[in-house]
Computed example of a mutant assay.
Amino acid sequence: MMKKHILITLTFLFTVSSISCKKESKPEEKSISVTEEITPETEIDTINWYTDLCEMNSKFDVSKYSKKQLKDTHHLWFGTIGYINFDGYPVFNLDDKTEPIEVLEERYAEGKAELENLEVVDLPYWNNLKQLKLLELKSFYEHEKTAYFAYANPKNLVKTVYDVKAKVYVDALVSGDSLKMIAAWKKLNEEQKANNGSPEHVEKKFQSRLNSPQCLEYAKMDLFTFGWNNNTKKNCKGCEVLENRDPMYEEYKKLFISTTEECSEP
């Protein structure tokens, strides 16, 4: 009788444990925001959207925003819009294929048109964010255009704005003096070794290029890319707010009557 009682107890505990495990493996779904009251007159629609780890389902008042406006606003906040992929000069290898300036002009025009055509919700926060994105895109375009021409004629770098620690690299590039360029390149190499998890690999690569017949071209490429470009200050007043997307997330949630989320483990 005692054995039977123990067996029943163990069976019950195993069942409870199994149910508990099944619940834990299921993605968590919960309501995360309710921003306004729903009245009988409110016409409601739903929209799915996402963040890095979560999929959202939100209810919204169709008299306030359209689904297109909400999708375009999400794209403004969460998409990669506002950047230009352009290879106008070699970065890691002299043999890298570079693109003509016409490619930059074309991609800027396309990106600008895409941004301008976004139909974001008509609220000050999102209208301002759209203008900042346009300003960021323009500053990125102007920087890449400057870099394109400066690589061919480093004297153009004198007119650019950069961190003071890059002065030694810019001066060497502008001078065109081989000894100054090699000295600045060695200094840059030491800086890169100090900030790399495999300094031996960095040194080996540097020594290989230093002893190459193309050593001055390699020096120019590294001084330009890692000495100047990585230390430039782009002209985009107010764009620092674009670096923090958390406030955008909070503002976006405010557009909905309610939102539920289903998140995966990070």
Results as ranks from 00 to 15, higher is better:
126 W>P: 05
158 V>L: 04
147 A>S: 15
95 D>E: 15
146 T>D: 08
156 N>Y: 11
118 L>W: 09
124 P>K: 10
122 D>F: 00
155 K>E: 15
132 L>S: 07
147 A>G: 12
109 A>Y: 03
145 K>I: 02
134 L>T: 06
112 K>M: 12
107 R>D: 05
128 N>H: 07
119 E>T: 11
106 E>G: 06
145 K>S: 05
94 L>F: 04
114 E>P: 02
126 W>T: 10
133 K>W: 03
120 V>H: 00
101 I>P: 07
130 K>P: 09
111 G>A: 15
126 W>E: 05
116 E>Y: 06
141 Y>P: 08
136 E>R: 12
152 A>T: 12
148 Y>M: 07
102 E>D: 12
157 L>Q: 04
159 K>W: 01
151 Y>S: 10
129 L>N: 15
134 L>V: 02
126 W>N: 00
151 Y>M: 04
112 K>G: 01
100 P>N: 07
159 K>L: 05
118 L>F: 08
152 A>W: 04
136 E>S: 14
141 Y>W: 04
110 E>V: 12
119 E>S: 11
127 N>V: 14
148 Y>R: 11
101 I>R: 06
100 P>W: 06
104 L>S: 12
108 Y>H: 09
144 E>V: 01
143 H>W: 14
105 E>A: 11
117 N>L: 02
154 P>M: 05
112 K>H: 13
121 V>N: 02
135 L>V: 11
125 Y>T: 14
122 D>H: 08
112 K>Q: 14
147 A>M: 15
125 Y>Q: 11
139 S>W: 01
133 K>T: 09
150 A>R: 12
149 F>S: 13
132 L>T: 01
133 K>I: 01
151 Y>L: 09
